[in-house]
Design a protein around this nucleic acid. Structure first.
Lengths: 146, 146
DNA sequence: GTGCTTGCAAATCGTTTGCAATAGC
DNA sequence: GCTATTGCAAACGATTTGCAAGCAC
């Protein structure tokens, strides 16, 4: 999305389009590789010397609360973000940490479960963990051992 | 499971049944409320004064690596564990943090996705986030605002 | 006695918090 | 000027690491 569209997107969701907010959302929107706070901060920082990591945290939380981005907690080291908010699953490689998108099975929202009862679902995350094809080749010896 | 069965379970998976390992697995097996490292440590500690939290971490990692327990990362504050290793989904309440089990839709493993390619899935986690029925009542005013 | 296991203390590091400085209407 | 936003520095807290002591065969 262009800067103009990012600003419109923010306004539509009652978020004042400050320079920092526009920059963060634009970065996440243009980089669909599930960036982390650090990656976003490190990329934006050179062009915005006064930007603080706290602000990146604040903006991301705001965008998440307003449902403009997804928060991906597949990696227990750090949180990843995704501007693609349509339902889809994520696969993480246990070796290299790379996260890739997968289509989500349609049925995932068919929860006719008496346990769900009156509990209200707001968000669904599907995570697959395993070994990506590159690491399967590279680490085949080590993996055999397990 | 009884202590005897826990020991058999460990042996079957080539894990020496030390007192610490038996205690941790037994605790997780008998408490299906998705305990955290801290909960496990705090519960076992009184009866095992020399037990260290490091050991609890070590044992849980070992049990996870040997597929005796699930590691649940639905909560980005701390990791939860589950001795129920059959596929099922988890729901977490954003207000009280309670985690409940849900049946997993059968289809979740039907991933005929060209993106999956040659990547190897070892583990599947389905997480639902929302508001549990108790909190829906308690916090209805606050929730309305959003 | 050799190798595996345990446990203490310290370090690490992602994230949060308190609060002062700043910007926008 | 008042409120929302930003940003620095410090705190926090879950997890990891280094290493020495203990245990088992």
């Amino acid at each position: 999305m262009s800067t103009i569209e990012i600003i419109q997107q923010l306004k539509k969701n009652d978020i004042k389009p400050s320079l920092q907010r526009v920059s963060v959302l634009k970065y996440v929107d243009n980089h669909r590789n599930h960036p982390t706070v650090d990656e976003i901060y490190n990329e934006l920082s050179p062009n915005m010397p006064t930007l603080s990591k706290t602000t990146v945290y604040n903006v991301l939380k705001l965008l998440y609360d307003k449902h403009l981005i997804q928060m991906i907690t597949i990696d227990n080291k750090q949180v990843h973000f995704d501007a693609d908010i349509k339902h889809h699953a994520h696969f993480i490689c246990k070796y290299c940490g790379k996260i890739i998108d997968l289509d989500i099975p349609e049925c995932i929202n068919n929860i006719n479960n008496e346990l769900l009862n009156k509990n209200q679902i707001q968000e669904t995350q599907v995570y697959y963990k395993g070994i990506c094809k590159d690491c399967l080749i590279k680490h085949s010896a080590k993996i055999e051992k397990n």
